[in-house]
Each structure stands twice: as C-alpha cells, then as structure tokens.
Simulated assay, not measured.
Amino acid sequence: MKRTGKKTATDRNFVVALSRGLDVLRAFQPSDGLLGNQEIAARTNLPKPTVSRLTYTLTKLGYLTPVPRFEKYQLAPAAMALGYAALANLGVRHLSEPFREEVMRATGGAVAVGGRDRHSMIYFGQSRGSETVGVQLDVGSRVPIATSAMGRAYFWALEEDDRAELLRVLREHYGSRWPKMRDGLERAGETVAKHGFAISVGDWHDDIGAAGVALKLNDGTGPYAFNCGAPAFRFTEERLINDIGPRLLTMVRNIEAALGGLVPHSKKDDSKKLKSGGKVARVAEGIR
C-alpha cells in the first residue's frame, strides 16, 4: 500500500486520519491470522508510531481484537460486519449465483465475480466444485488487474478517464515491471475487442488459465467482472477462446439482461475497434 497522495492529502474535505485507519484494516488479508504493528507498518508504509496509535484506537472502537500474548491483533466482529453488510447489498452477487453454478458445472472451472480494490480485483462471489481443486481462491481473495483475466476484462470496460487514472495507479505500482504488464494489457484489449472477453494463461499464475468478462450496469455502480478459471492443462488458450470465453460471455450478458444492464455491442461493432485509429489503438498509446 502507498501513502495518501499529496493532492488528496491537501484536500480540505479529505480526512487523512480516517484514510490511514482504513489502510490499517485493509492490511489484514483472508489468509492472515494475526498481525503486529511492525507487519502492519510494512504493509501500509505508515510509521510504526502512527500504526500503534491507530491500532489502539481501532481496538477501543471494537474493530480490532488485541492478542497480548503475541503482541498482535486480529480483525474483530465489528470489522467483519462491515464486509458482510457490503456483500448483502451487492445484488449482483446473489442474482448471479445460479448463473455461476451452471457455468461451473458445464466447464468444471471455478466461476467468480469481483470488483476493484486499488490495483487488484477482490472476489465477492465464488462458485467452485470438486474439479477445481487447483484454484484455491474464495470470497475476499484478490487477483491483480494487470495480469488476471478478471482484471483485464474490468480494465477494458472502464470509461476513458477512469482507465487513464487506473493506468497511472498501475504504472506507479509496478515500476520497472510495468512494460511487461503493459504488453499483457495491450494484448488483452485486442482479445476483448475481437471476442468480447479477456484471457490469462500463466500470466498471473503459472498453472492457471482463465477467461474474464466485464459486467456493466446502468445504475452507476461497477463495472464488475466475472472469471472462469482452472488449471492451465485443462483450460488451454485454445479452449478458453473457443469454449470457456464464449460461455462466460453468454452468462454475463444474461445476467446483464436480468439486472437491466446495458445492451452489449454486436460482434461487428467490436471488430471495428481493431482497425487503425480504433479505440484499442488509441488507448494502447496511453498505456505506453
């Protein structure tokens, strides 16, 4: 995590202390048990004395539970309640469940829906069967925007201004690794324009293959994105292009219809993006 930017920090309406407190809560990941002030400081890039004051305050408010024996903390029920309340209000999570289950059974892949959290996508719905033992992700898991199928689909579903801002965030996050990430995003843009979905085969995780499709709504929320993934020996690039991706695209379009979402572009319209001067070509120039 990075500290609050100078521009944001000088905004008179922006409460820096609140932002830092939320960064402390964000530092806890699903696979974590306990975290100490030193670990939290390393994850948030905040000074340890500041972290100590924040963990003390969050403990008093009931969002953290101290474990004195180890001099560490864990998330308290009050913090978890915020997450569950958010999940309960995400209608797309509940409505999409039968659609996700159907695709999971038909493909043998794990099917998830997620939304953006900084430079990652975070799962808030997951359908996984016995055949997806190689995909150990669940609600609360994160996948990177730049290299995952879900993230790439989300990226290319953004409006131009929002995509430019996300580009800045990703470029800053990856630093010297950015050229490789940029190339993957460019290829994903061409795949989305041609097929309507993104893919990732070994880009995020060496032995995972997945397809991703964005979900765009007309209520001002999102976009969100779905993926369908499995071990790469089962979800090869060929199968992702010819089978998994089209199935997932149909699923998401059906969900959009059920939610009253936007009407998808036709394949003929999407193909125009690949032409010289098309949308993908213009945006790719900004990625560099």
Rank of each mutant, 00 (worst) to 15 (best):
K2M: 04
K6C: 02
T8D: 05
T10L: 13
V16W: 13
R20N: 13
P30F: 14
S31C: 06
T44G: 04
K48E: 13
V67N: 08
F70N: 03
L82Y: 08
Y84R: 12
L87A: 14
G91S: 12
V92E: 09
R93I: 03
L95V: 06
E97F: 14
P98I: 14
R100W: 00
R100S: 11
M104Q: 08
M104D: 05
T107C: 05
A112H: 10
G114E: 12
D117E: 14
I122N: 03
S130V: 15
E131A: 12
V133S: 00
V139Q: 01
S141I: 08
P144Y: 02
T147H: 00
A153Y: 00
F155N: 00
A157M: 13
D162M: 08
G175E: 14
R177P: 02
G184T: 09
L185Y: 14
G189C: 13
K194P: 00
H195W: 01
A198G: 02
S200M: 06
I208E: 04
G209F: 10
V213Y: 11
K216I: 09
D219M: 13
G222V: 03
G222K: 02
P223C: 14
C228R: 10
R234S: 05
I241L: 09
D243W: 11
R247A: 05
L248P: 05
L249K: 15
L249T: 08
V252T: 13
V252W: 01
I255K: 14
E256W: 00
A257D: 10
G260R: 01
G261F: 01
H265R: 10
S266Q: 03
S266D: 08
S266V: 15
K267M: 09
S271P: 00
A281C: 02
A284Q: 10
